[in-house]
Amino acid sequence: MVFVFYETIENSMRNFLLFIFRNHFTFLFLILEIVSFYLLVNFNSYHRASWISSSNKISGNVYQSYSNATQYLMLQQINEELAKENAYLRSQMPASFKDSKDYFSLVYDSLNKRQYTYRSAKVINNSVNKHFNYLTINKGSYNGIKKEMGVISAKGVVGIVKDVTLHYSSVISLLNTRLSISAKLKGKGFFGALGWDGKDYRYAWLNEIPVHAPVTVGDLVVTSGYSAIFPEGILIGTVEEVEKDKGESFFRIKVKLSVDFKDLSFVEVISNNMRDEQLELESTNND
């Protein structure tokens, strides 16, 4: 009796293995698709393993050498941009301020404490044609870059640092439908959320501006400074078109981005030295 029982188990086991072996093509297919799907879903959570992102060592090196090879072709353009950036920085020096106080909001300088530190970095990989665009820059934790720091270029806001390795970081570009940043109309104080719709790399949309706000085409759109990532008043773009749907109490504003994302070579990473303090204070508000 017992013997027969063992025999049936052995038989069904063998049948099972045979079944798997005969259909190994389908099973392998399912396993590989499950692995891919797991990677895909995990990617959406912020805490995914960063080894696979383009800031990892191998791909970072490939992009670095590629960009080294091509930068000779672009020297003229890069020089021009550096010159422009020098001019921009000089314009921020205290000596160049007499009446205008607007520029001082970039460097908040009370009690000799510096709130924001800027580090320059070079873009070594970039895309504008996906729904979720990312950049890779050639500075990492070794140079003091951390997650969730803001990234700007001489012309305006570029994105937010997503992953950091020792020598590279990957940056969520403003041209990523998953990113939305807090923005306001310069000199008017109304603020809203700015995001990209995945279509044209030159335009983004600013929502949540109430209809009683005086918006005109050509108004400057700048960062609001509420998020603890960007300082207040960094340029994002200009108002291109104002739309209002019937019955809505908010405008939909088309913003022409000031940064040309197809033409990025040098960026600056902003660290807010008082960010932890602000976040700690704000975390006590959770009710």
Binding site: R48, S54, S127
Partner: peptide, 17 residues
Amino acid sequence: IDLFSNTPGMHSFATVL
């Protein structure tokens, strides 16, 4: 390809299919 374009799982899923 995923490794280089920041899209873990996307290209591997489509290519395996």
